[in-house]
Simulated scan of single mutants.
Amino acid sequence: MYCQRIRHLREKPRLTQTEIANKIGISQSAYKRYEQNEIKRYSETTLDNLAKALETTTEFILGEEGQHDKFEHVPPEFLKWIATEESMAYIMEAFIKFQ
Rank of each mutant, 00 (worst) to 15 (best):
T18L: 06
E38I: 10
T58F: 03
T46V: 11
A30T: 10
P76C: 00
H68C: 04
S43D: 09
F78V: 04
E35P: 03
E64V: 07
H73P: 01
I39T: 08
M1C: 05
K52D: 07
I24P: 05
N22C: 01
E77T: 11
Q28G: 03
E35T: 05
G66F: 09
I20L: 02
E35H: 09
H8D: 06
F60Y: 15
T58Y: 04
L62G: 02
A83C: 03
F78Y: 15
E93N: 13
K52W: 01
M1E: 12
K97S: 10
Y90N: 08
P76S: 03
E77S: 12
P75E: 15
F95E: 10
T84S: 13
K23W: 03
T18D: 10
G66W: 12
A89T: 06
I26H: 06
E55T: 10
T18K: 15
G66C: 02
E59N: 13
F98T: 10
K70H: 12
C3W: 11
E59H: 09
H68Q: 07
T16M: 03
E93Q: 10
C3T: 09
Q28R: 15
W81I: 06
L50P: 07
T56G: 06
I20Q: 06
E72Y: 10
T58E: 06
E77R: 11
R33L: 08
L47K: 12
E11M: 11
G66H: 11
T56V: 07
K23F: 05
L15D: 05
E59Y: 10
H73F: 12
F98A: 11
Y31V: 00
Q99L: 13
T57M: 01
F60T: 07
E11C: 08
R5E: 02
K12N: 09
K97W: 03
E77K: 14
H8Y: 05
E65R: 10
F78M: 09
E38R: 15
I61P: 05
A53N: 03
K97A: 14
I91H: 05
P13G: 01
I20W: 02
K12M: 08
M92V: 12
F95I: 08
M1V: 09
M88N: 13
Q99C: 11
D48K: 15
Y34Q: 04
E64A: 10
A94S: 12
H8T: 09
E64C: 05
K97F: 05
M88G: 07
A30K: 14
K40D: 09
A53Q: 03
F95W: 13
L79S: 02
V74F: 12
I82R: 14
A21D: 00
T58R: 14
P75Y: 14
Y31G: 02
E65P: 02
T45Y: 13
R14Q: 15
E72Q: 15
E72N: 13
Y2W: 06
R7C: 00
L54K: 08
S43Y: 10
R5Q: 05
Q17A: 02
N22R: 13
G63V: 06
H68R: 08
T16S: 14
T45V: 14
E19Q: 15
E85P: 09
N22P: 03
R5K: 14
E38G: 09
K23V: 01
A53G: 05
I24D: 01
L79W: 02
I61D: 02
E38D: 13
S43G: 12
L62S: 02
E86G: 08
L54V: 01
A83I: 00
R5P: 01
S87D: 10
K97Q: 12
E59A: 13
